[in-house]
């Protein structure tokens, strides 16, 4: 089934979470790394508006106290297998906001971060390299998932239906 997993990683859909960033990294993500000059769409990437569609998620900003719950909730809404990239020094260490009273981060206290892209803000090339690294990690995860499914099939067991427990009750309003 390596064909399917090879196909799969050729279509990474990207989602951005702003966890209290100064917007520098968001500008870099939205307008610099994805302009015609660098064009990540040739890798099959696409920005999607909904966390449910995402495969690779970018987190920017130092994770403020107010944003923490919301970020975690959105992150848990992203279906598996997913890869998390922390963009900028803010989510990695707190950056220029480190030690400030409204800061709950760094992000990897609460979420497993797979790829760090340091910089304030990082260069577009660095962000694209991050996407490529994330693709490799994603490929491993997809393969692992395939294998788990296969071995379950061999054992004759039905894959256990995963009960979805939203992180926080989905009372949207």
């Amino acid at each position: 089934m390596s064909f399917i997993s090879d196909m799969t990683v050729r279509s990474p859909w990207l989602f951005r979470i702003n966890a209290g960033s100064c917007n520098g990294c968001d500008v870099e993500l939205a307008t610099t790394a994805f302009i015609p000059r660098y064009d990540v769409e040739r890798l099959g990437c696409k920005y999607c508006g909904s966390p449910r569609h995402a495969d690779i998620v970018f987190i920017t900003g130092p994770l403020t106290v107010r944003m923490k719950d919301k970020v975690l909730r959105v992150w848990h809404d992203i279906p598996e297998p997913k890869v998390t990239i922390a963009v900028g020094i803010c989510p990695i260490s707190g950056g220029v906001f480190r030690g400030g009273h409204p800061i709950a981060g760094p992000v990897d206290r609460y979420l497993p971060v797979d790829v760090n892209v340091p910089g304030c803000p990082p260069r577009p090339q660095a962000i694209m390299e991050g996407v490529l690294l994330a693709k490799d990690i994603w490929l491993e995860r997809v393969r692992a998932q395939e294998e788990a499914r296969q071995s379950l099939k061999k054992l004759g067991a039905r894959p256990e239906e995963k009960k979805e427990e939203p992180f926080i009750d989905a009372g949207y309003l």
Partner: peptide, 21 residues
């Protein structure tokens, strides 16, 4: 003036989506 995705990208997207949770 971009390179653009491969022409078969919609097929690839569908294969991927089929494997997602």
């Amino acid at each position: 003036r971009r390179v653009g995705p491969p022409i078969l990208q919609p097929f690839i997207d569908c294969v991927k989506l089929a494997g997602k949770e």
